[in-house]
């Protein structure tokens, strides 16, 4: 097995850790850690799943991952702002289950 295989294995474990964190974490920021970790796992797979072109890694998946990283940061930044606002309004940074009863 070569190094790329090693990173694919790591990506699989990272995905599992992310899923675990997503289920176990109450706090929204931890959920965001988990989602970002899962995202990184998938970025690794994206690069690993395509073969090399003319001896060098394929540039297309790398460009896609670069786009993906920027999108991940954007989504994370917005989610953090949403979390802070939610905390200011409700005093909670978690998603409790009692939430559908409010008047619209």
């Amino acid at each position: 097995m070569d190094s790329l295989g090693l990173y694919v294995l790591a990506a699989a474990v990272l995905f599992g850790v992310g899923v675990y964190g997503l289920i176990v974490s109450e706090h929204l920021m931890r959920k965001l850690f988990a989602i970002n970790i899962m995202g990184n796992a998938i970025f690794i797979l994206l690069v690993a799943a395509s073969g090399p072109v003319e001896g060098a890694p394929d540039p297309v998946p790398q460009a896609l991952v670069l786009t993906g990283i920027v999108i991940a940061v954007s989504a994370t930044a917005f989610a953090l702002a949403l979390m802070v606002r939610l905390y200011q309004e409700t005093g909670q940074a978690t998603l409790s289950s009692r939430d559908e009863g409010d008047d619209g």
Partner: peptide, 14 residues
Amino acid sequence: IAIGSGLLVGVIGL
């Protein structure tokens, strides 16, 4: 669930 999804992703990735 975490182990299952990790295994699934591992099999897919490898």
